[in-house]
Design a protein around this nucleic acid. Structure first.
Length: 883
DNA sequence: AAACTCACG
DNA sequence: ACGTACGTGAGTTTT
């Protein structure tokens, strides 16, 4: 069955442009409309499988319509340059798809499409017209379906003549009459003033056409008659303007519109140019989908067997890189599925994972554990943890490609090898998703494709290494890499392998108590609401609060009423159930996340939880913690804080010791800004929020009350986050004006801070990035955006990242140094957790004095600043007591 | 998979 | 005028 798709290129491009955020590629070219256009084409090709295809464009600005009505499309906002610059790209894209395109001076895309649908109809071809313009509906017929975009470009509504009749009660041709009556503001078509869709439809249902309406105007009552008579000429002209011209002088040669599907490599090349990485991966165009094997690196592969494992040892000195594939998100509970060793001769030795457990694998295991056998790997940290649970130590890693890639651009959301190939212009490899499948479809492939994929990864590691090393050098990141992040990876692995003991019985007890309270609260709430519902559903809760109980709506979310804690607190005075709901939320959170969630993470073998720190996620350089997240264990409210009691030392009689930096971010700010006043506060070891209150409110220390201190504290937070009057006003529940005055007052006293904020934003604008004390970078491509929101966000990030990131540098440095000291001092104490500005240890009785002294000493001297770093230490029989 | 909510620094 | 505080991870419901 032959099927023709006709696309209104201009209409779809502008729909896509306004529907998507302003993306831009590395050279600053905007690509959001191109991206939306691409998505639409891909979807159409997949779903419709057209045999014939055409994209029509408007040519130039003046069409025959202007000859009749020069205001046509006047008053319309000029096409923004961000969109017009994308049209050449869209044409190029269409060409890369192998889709014919057409334009004709003096005619709009819809006239071309109108003409083609007429011709196609005559030839008995089925047609789908894709546009964002309702006018197109006039073209619908038995063979011609109109697909109109709905919210964005990803979804379309299909209109057959039946569908049009159902929706409007009109036949397709009457769409022209509809517009003749109601006009179209966007094209500056007047219609009859005061006639909107409703009235126009009513008139058409009665009279059928504009002409009929005009001639029978006398029958119409009231003001409407007057209007119609007065604007009869407008209506006639509007109808004419809205009529798609279906006699464009053109021929349709069907074979010229033939579409045989796109060519993977051609399209892939275009996507690479546009930097559509996600699409490249999703479609596996980077690997060429098997069709263009030539694009992939070719590697000679030897699959190792038990017989050849023994002689493998001869090759070890030649191994340049080893890729160890681990499946599963959590390396503590994951499987190793194979190793690929790339030798300097460019050959890959592939070892299936099963072989690791055979007696013949002794030499390989020894090599992996050999401190002196130098290896380049991808993600040492994760690999070390996974191998650990198989009883294999990993040592001798000298270069980690993942960490290097992260440092070179920490804002990239992931750094998969397949992406890195693209990022550094090396031969592409398949994305894991395409080799393994994803989600429920995940499957380890046959040894052939598996060995090939992993060998290509190993090969890529060897090729990436010199490139990344060069980039690190160029960015002056060698100390950051070799003295901080790389050694830290091993420290993290050892903390995670150690794990922290959790008192499961204590946790279950807590859960039981919570369960009872939760049940009571729920009962009370149902009673107060007059019915039972799912309390965990914000949607249902919103219906109850705002529709049933009629409470005032404070805030809305994208999809409905907001019911977050901030809203509920404001509603509490109106109805007694509200505070119970807040209570319920608090306890339910504790129950599901911290009692049930934590219990699930306790390992049977060890009775401990083994978190995994992500070292290559946070754009600022912070760590993050998963499986479970131990960086967000409750502390602010007493009920939640009790959770900390179940975190206990591994051995009886030991203590949990916690050491946290006091005000590290503000101290860092004092240092980088050089603000004399702020520095002085820390040099005199003052309470910084009190000091801020004194200066902002112009009072003496004794006059600072708790409310002033609270507000000053919020100002300090705001400063660290990249202040805005709006943000501060939200936080303090004051007006924007008042917040603005606070900020102004703050800057007049802390002039150095203001200068820093101005400078850092300027720096970001000139360099495109900002740096931390240890030269960690964060790129801010949106710092020069014309969109206010994007630009403001980038500016705040420019202010915040060096502060948050330098604080991260410092504690990471302290961790590496402490790990070194603990090893040298041969202590039995262990470092267990990092919570951004806090380190947690477990310490035997006889080492308490040593550790109480050593830990803060190292932390405070990790990096010398112009102000002292201060660390508070405490300890107890569990994490709760270490406060 | 996305939206909402909430825990931490 | 614009309309968000910076950085994370996880549980639940809804689509």
């Amino acid at each position: 069955m032959e099927k023709l798709i006709l696309i209104d290129g201009n209409s779809i491009a502008s729909r896509a442009f306004y529907a998507l955020p302003l993306l831009s590629n590395s050279s600053g070219l905007h690509t959001n409309a191109v991206f939306g256009f691409t998505t639409m084409l891909l979807k159409l090709i997949e779903e419709e499988k057209p045999t014939h295809f055409l994209v029509a464009f408007d040519a130039g600005k003046v069409t025959f319509r202007h000859a009749d009505y020069k205001e046509y499309k006047g008053g319309r906002a000029k096409t923004p340059p961000e969109l017009s610059e994308q049209f050449p790209l869209i044409r190029e894209l269409v060409q890369s798809f192998g889709i014919p395109q057409f334009e004709l001076p003096g005619y709009e895309a819809d006239d071309i499409i109108g003409t083609l649908t007429r011709l196609a109809d005559e030839k008995g071809l089925n047609v789908i017209v894709v546009s964002g313009d309702k006018d197109m509906l006039q073209l619908a017929s038995e063979r011609v379906t109109i697909a109109l975009t709905r919210k964005g470009v990803s979804e379309v509504d299909r209109y057959t003549p039946e569908a049009i009749s159902e929706k409007y009660g009109l036949v397709p041709k009457q769409i022209i009459d509809l517009k003749g009556l109601m006009g179209d503001a966007s094209d500056n078509i007047p219609g009859i003033p005061g006639v909107g869709e409703k009235t126009a439809l009513k008139l058409l249902h009665q009279y059928g056409t504009v002409e009929e309406v005009l001639s029978k105007a006398d029958e119409i009552t009231g003001k409407m008659q007057e209007k119609i008579k007065e604007h009869a000429a407008d209506a006639r002209m509007s109808k004419e303007l809205a009529t798609i011209f279906r006699e464009v002088p053109m021929e349709m040669k069907l074979d010229e519109l033939h579409f045989a599907g796109f060519d993977g490599p051609t399209l892939g090349a275009m996507f690479r140019k546009l930097e559509f990485k996600s699409l490249l991966e999703k479609m596996d165009l980077s690997s060429g989908d098997g069709a263009d094997e030539a694009l992939q690196a070719t590697v000679e592969i030897e699959i190792v067997s038990t017989q050849t494992l023994g002689i493998l040892a001869n090759e070890f000195p030649d191994v340049e890189a080893v890729h160890i594939e681990i499946v599963g998100e959590n390396p503590h509970v994951s499987d190793v599925i194979g190793l690929a060793l790339l030798t300097s001769k460019g050959k890959s030795l592939f070892v299936p994972a099963e072989l690791l457990d055979t007696p013949e694998a002794g030499a390989l295991r020894d090599w992996l554990a050999d401190e002196h056998a130098s290896k380049t790997v991808y993600d040492m940290h994760r690999t070390e943890v996974a191998l650990h649970w198989k009883g294999i130590p990993l040592r001798g890693v000298t270069f980690d490609v993942l960490i290097a890639a992260y440092l070179l651009d920490p804002t990239e959301s992931t750094h998969t090898l397949n992406e890195l190939a693209g990022r550094y212009n090396l031969s592409p490899i398949s994305a894991d998703e395409n080799v393994f499948g994803k989600g429920a479809k995940f499957k380890v492939p046959e040894i052939g494709p598996l060995s090939e994929h992993l060998s290509r990864k190993a090969d890529l590691l060897a090729k990436l290494k010199p490139v990344l090393k060069g980039e690190l050098e160029k960015n002056e990141m060698n100390p950051l890499y070799y003295e901080l992040e790389f050694p830290l990876a091993r420290v993290l692995a050892s903390m995670e392998k150690q794990g922290i003991r959790v008192n499961a019985d204590g946790l279950r007890q807590l859960g039981g108590d919570l369960g009872k309270s939760i049940e009571k609260l729920a009962e009370g709430i149902y009673k107060g609401a007059g019915m039972e519902f799912n309390l965990n559903s914000p949607k249902q809760l919103g219906d109850i609060l705002f529709d049933k109980l009629g409470l005032p709506v404070i805030k809305k979310t994208k999809t409905g009423y907001s019911t977050d804690a901030e809203v509920l607190e404001k509603l509490a005075p109106y109805h007694e159930v509200v505070s119970s709901i807040l209570n319920y939320r608090q306890l339910a959170k504790l129950q599901s996340t911290y009692v049930e969630g934590l219990l699930k993470e306790i390992r049977g073998e060890t009775g401990k939880v083994h978190t995994y720190y992500q070292q290559t996620i946070a754009a600022t350089g912070r760590l993050s913690s998963q499986f479970p997240n131990l960086q967000n264990i409750p502390i602010r409210l007493e009920e939640g804080r009790k959770i900390r009691k179940v975190f206990v030392p591994d051995e009886p009689g030991w203590s949990v010791l916690a050491a946290d930096y006091s005000q590290i971010e503000l101290r860092v700010l004092a240092h980088i800004s050089g603000d004399e006043n702020l520095k002085e506060a820390f040099l005199n070891d003052m309470d910084v929020h009190t000091k801020t209150a004194m200066d902002v409110f112009g009072v003496s220390e004794t006059e600072v009350d708790s409310n002033m201190r609270r507000q000053a504290k919020a100002v300090n937070f705001g400063i660290v986050y990249g202040i805005s009057d709006y943000g501060l006003s939200q936080n303090l529940n004051i007006t924007r004006k008042e917040a603005g005055q606070f900020i102004e007052q703050y800057f007049s006293v802390f002039k150095g801070v203001r200068n820093y904020m101005d400078d850092i934003v300027k720096q970001a604008r000139t360099n495109g990035y900002v740096t931390t004390l240890l030269q960690r970078r964060r790129y801010l491509p949106e710092i020069n955006a014309s969109n206010f929101n994007l630009r403001s966000f980038a500016e705040r990030t420019a202010m915040n990242s060096p502060i948050q990131g330098s604080a991260a540098d410092i504690i990471k440095l302290a961790m590496v140094q402490i790990a070194g000291r603990m090893k040298r001092e041969k202590v039995r104490s262990r470092m267990l957790l990092q919570v951004h500005d806090e380190l947690v240890f477990e310490v035997p009785e006889d080492e308490l004095d040593l550790m109480k002294r050593l830990v803060p000493e190292v932390m405070e001297s990790a990096l010398a600043l112009d102000v002292p770093l201060k660390v508070d230490v405490s300890y107890g029989e569990n994490w709760y007591e270490a406060k």
